[in-house]
Each structure stands twice: as C-alpha cells, then as structure tokens.
Design a protein around this nucleic acid. Structure first.
Lengths: 120, 120
DNA sequence: CGTCGGGTTCGATCCGCGTCGAACATCGGC
DNA sequence: GCCGATGTTCGACGCGGATCGAACCCGACG
C-alpha cells in the first residue's frame, strides 16, 4: 500500500493503543437470509449502490446517505458490516466504508450484480 | 395444455361461476426491495427452493412447508405472490403454487440462481 | 347430505427493525 | 489544549411482520 490505506484500527498494526476497542471492522459474508435482509432495506440498498459506483468501492460514511440522522446511518452501517457486505477502512485516519465486492462475489456469485442491475 | 392445468380460477375461463372472488392469482414482479424482502425469510426461501426443485416448478401448497400452521403458510404464500415470485395454478381443481422462474429471470437476471446456489 | 381435507381470512399477540435525540468518543486543526 | 466534525452507543418509540388459533369457504368423496 503506497498511501495511508489501512483496514482495521486507525493506528494500523503497529501494536500501539487500541483506539476503537471492541469494534469488529469486518465479518464473514453471512448466510443468504442475512445478506438478503441486509439488502432489502431501501436505505442500505442506496448505500451499497453508491459504494459500488465509487472509485475503489470505498466512500466516506457521510457521502452514503441523505435525509436520515447520523445514528440511523450508523445502524445501517452496522447491519451491512455484520452481514459481511462492507468493512471499515481508514484512509489517513478518515473512516471509510468499503463494499467487499470480491468476497461477496465469491460466496454468492452474481448476486450483487443482479441486485444492482435491477435498480435501474 | 394437454391436461387440466389452468392459471386463475378453478373453473378456468369458461365464463362460469367465480369460485374464488377477489383473489389475485398473480402479480407483476416487484421492485428489488420487495423481492429481496420476500426472499429474506427462511420459511419462504425454503418454499422457493422446493418449488425450484419440483417438476415444472410447481408443487402442492401442503408440500412446501413443515412445522408451521396453515395460516402462517398462507401468509407466506401471499407475500411471495404479491412480490410476483409465484402464482396460483390449478391442476384438475387442485391448488398449486408455481415459481415464476422466467418472469423473475427477465426482470432480475441471475438473481434466483445466485440465491438458490448460495443455499447449498 | 354430511363430512373431511386443504386454503384463506380475521383478530390477537409478540418481537424485531427503523427511526430519532442525546450523550459520548475520537481525530484533526486552530 | 480546546473545539468542531464525524461516528458510535444508548434508550425510547412506533410500526410492521411472523406466528398462532378459530372460523369460514369450497371441492371431493362417501
């Protein structure tokens, strides 16, 4: 990695202080019902769509939603994360959400493509 | 049709008595959130799986579920039907549910295949 | 004609989800 | 070192969904 991109804690893996304790930044791609339930919500679906359109499938949290409160957005991030669809990534200390396209594709081939295509 | 297969009212389209009034037997395939929500429930997912495995994608209602009440099953049938995933079909007067594979495939190509493959 | 099997409808219940506001934590900048 | 921006967490609330039992309807069969 040539820039500050890091997956996990903001401080990276230098063994330093644990800045965000107990925060699982990533999870395995869940079962079919879990993944479908995560994608069934319009708000989350829009988030996924924006990430898919973003360069490197990564976007700042604030750029993924409109017209809802921060706490609500955070809740949706958690659902997507626990379904294994996204992960937290830190770029120069700034928190981003990344769509785990490859991992989801491996476990459920073609699903995300079908879903995203169906939005048009 | 060489046998008694009929879509719609049990009496077919001979202009006879309306045996099941106000019962929409089929609906257009819904939006992505609607379809995903319909597929997100484990009970309905199992129903879809059994229909997909059945010959002609058609099965008797009673053969699509276990360990739940009739009324609950009927509710799930309604959800699937209103999402456009299934339709009611009468074979020699016996009510069946048919998975509308072609119609879903046309609107959301690859989705059902991905979902069903992910169950294995 | 009475009965049985199979589905639907209705009402009630219960639980989970989406939403918000407020409080807290963290990071970057002045 | 303080402050603003950004996310997370924690209750609380309301709504919709999943479930059940009971009643009803219809076709088949004796």
């Amino acid at each position: 990695m040539t820039d500050g991109t890091t997956t996990g804690s903001p401080v990276g893996s230098d063994g330093g202080s644990q800045a965000l304790p107990g925060l699982p930044d990533v999870a395995e791609v869940g079962t079919v019902p879990v993944v479908l339930a995560a994608l069934a919500d319009p708000v989350r679906l829009e988030m996924v769509r924006r990430m898919a359109d973003a360069p490197d499938r990564t976007a700042r949290c604030v750029g993924l939603y409109d017209d809802i409160g921060k706490s609500t957005a955070s809740h949706h991030f958690k659902v997507l994360r626990e379904a294994g669809l996204t992960e937290r990534t830190y770029i120069d200390g700034a928190l981003h959400q990344r769509l785990r396209l490859a991992e989801v594709e491996q476990r459920l081939p073609g699903l995300l493509a079908s879903v995203l295509a169906g939005l048009g």
